[in-house]
């Protein structure tokens, strides 16, 4: 069985191919996020990859929605960044990982941001607690002035 790291090296990273959406989904795909159009691309790419992993319809919606929230945070707060989706394998278990990263202003208080109802833009908030509820694993690291990385994963039931 190939390792995740190895898979990463064969992926078409940052080629922009992903923009033509989901026909050529590899085991790992990066989608550059620069405008609201890229949000749609990111969730379509993620959904197609999750479908190949064998997730059910309900789970596909959860994953696509989580990607949408993460990509939107990039557009709203950092202007640009990227979303990387990849297949996870752990023994017989399969899943999908989504990493959103940007070099934006960062989140001053991550603990606050993880509370329901928190918002810096007067809107509905960052939606991070919601994303956490939709996925099985959730990690965030953010440095003010340097950017934010959110890594989430979902495993097949």
């Amino acid at each position: 069985m190939r390792s995740d790291k190895h898979d990463g090296s064969v992926a078409a990273k940052g080629t922009g191919l992903a923009r033509n959406v989901p026909t050529s989904v590899s085991r790992e795909t990066s989608v550059p996020i620069e405008s609201d159009l890229d949000i749609v691309t990111a969730r379509q790419v993620g959904r197609a990859l999750a479908e190949r992993v064998g997730f059910e319809a309900g789970e596909l919606t959860l994953i696509a929605t989580a990607i949408s929230e993460l990509a939107r945070n990039i557009v709203l707060y950092a202007k640009r960044g990227e979303v990387v989706v990849k297949v996870l394998e752990n023994g017989t278990r399969r899943g999908i990982e989504v990493v959103s990263s940007d070099e934006g202003p960062g989140i001053p208080n991550v603990t606050h941001a993880m509370q329901d109802g928190y918002s810096t833009s007067g809107g509905l908030g960052l939606g991070l607690p919601g994303v956490k509820r939709l996925m099985d694993e959730f990690e965030i690291s953010s440095v003010v002035g340097h950017g934010t990385v959110v890594k989430v994963a979902k495993w097949r039931a």
Binding site: G58, L62, R133, L134
Partner: peptide, 10 residues
Amino acid sequence: EVAFTMVQLG
């Protein structure tokens, strides 16, 4: 599926 996801997101 969308309704289910929406309520989970709050």
